[in-house]
Amino acid sequence: DDPCSLNIESANYAEHWCSLLKKTETPFGRCHLAVDPTEYYKRCKYDTCNCQNNEDCLCAALSSYARACATKGVMLWGWRERVCNKDVGSCPKSQIFLYNLTTCQQTCRSLSEGETHCLKGFTPVDGCGCPD
């Protein structure tokens, strides 16, 4: 069953935000040739309607598409500026929000131990990290 059919408010919320995945003028549009957004859009709507905390599930679904794009070499810079931006401002004072965190980020540990923890081929993720 489609969970969006049970609650019109959740359905409208899911449609409004998940449709960003399909729009070419959004940051997600830069990845359409590398990763078809159709399945991610369907899963986004289903998960967002099926979840008790709509925003968390929405953000997880959008992040899933962004990660699939990063795996194909397409970084989606700035997609969190319009939606799911609570994480952007929640970094500790010593860190900044980055869209391209890898296991090779500059940290005290990596500087002291060298490249031993740097995984080659690691797909970048977004989150809080150390500035250069």
Score class of each variant (00 low, 15 high):
residue 21 L to W: 03
residue 43 R to L: 10
residue 86 K to V: 14
residue 49 C to P: 07
residue 85 N to Y: 15
residue 48 T to D: 01
residue 10 S to P: 00
residue 95 Q to G: 04
residue 24 T to I: 04
residue 50 N to W: 03
residue 43 R to I: 05
residue 72 K to T: 06
residue 88 V to Y: 13
residue 57 C to G: 01
residue 30 R to C: 00
residue 34 A to L: 04
residue 9 E to K: 07
residue 12 N to D: 14
residue 37 P to A: 07
residue 63 S to N: 14
residue 87 D to V: 13
residue 22 K to W: 00
residue 56 D to P: 00
residue 17 W to I: 01
residue 25 E to W: 07
residue 16 H to N: 09
residue 45 K to L: 03
residue 60 A to L: 06
residue 66 A to Q: 02
residue 49 C to K: 04
residue 49 C to G: 07
residue 13 Y to S: 04
residue 44 C to A: 08
residue 16 H to A: 07
residue 66 A to S: 12
residue 21 L to H: 03
residue 17 W to Y: 15
residue 67 R to Q: 09
residue 53 N to A: 10
residue 40 Y to M: 00
residue 53 N to S: 11
residue 78 G to D: 15
residue 39 E to G: 00
residue 35 V to S: 01
residue 66 A to T: 02
residue 73 G to E: 06
residue 32 H to M: 08
residue 13 Y to N: 05
residue 27 P to A: 08
residue 88 V to G: 09
residue 61 A to N: 02
residue 18 C to N: 05
residue 31 C to P: 05
residue 61 A to Q: 02
residue 19 S to L: 03
residue 39 E to R: 13
residue 92 P to V: 10
residue 63 S to E: 12
residue 35 V to G: 00
residue 26 T to E: 06
residue 74 V to G: 06
residue 22 K to Y: 00
residue 54 N to V: 05
residue 29 G to T: 07
residue 15 E to D: 12
residue 12 N to K: 14
residue 16 H to G: 02
residue 11 A to D: 14
residue 64 S to K: 09
residue 65 Y to D: 01
residue 26 T to S: 06
residue 24 T to F: 03
residue 93 K to P: 12
residue 27 P to K: 04
residue 49 C to Q: 06
residue 32 H to A: 08
residue 53 N to I: 11
residue 54 N to A: 14
residue 60 A to Y: 01
residue 13 Y to T: 02
residue 92 P to Y: 09
residue 55 E to I: 04
residue 73 G to L: 08
residue 84 C to A: 13
residue 21 L to P: 02
residue 76 L to I: 15
residue 86 K to H: 15
residue 33 L to G: 11
residue 64 S to H: 07
residue 21 L to Y: 03
residue 51 C to H: 06
residue 34 A to V: 05
residue 10 S to N: 14
residue 62 L to S: 01
residue 63 S to C: 01
residue 72 K to D: 07
residue 92 P to D: 14
residue 32 H to G: 04
residue 23 K to D: 11
residue 29 G to Q: 05
residue 84 C to L: 11
residue 84 C to S: 12
residue 88 V to R: 15
residue 29 G to F: 09
residue 60 A to S: 10
residue 75 M to N: 09
residue 87 D to I: 11
residue 68 A to H: 03
residue 50 N to T: 02
residue 71 T to A: 15
residue 32 H to E: 07
residue 69 C to V: 05
residue 9 E to N: 09
residue 54 N to W: 01
residue 59 C to S: 03
residue 39 E to Y: 09
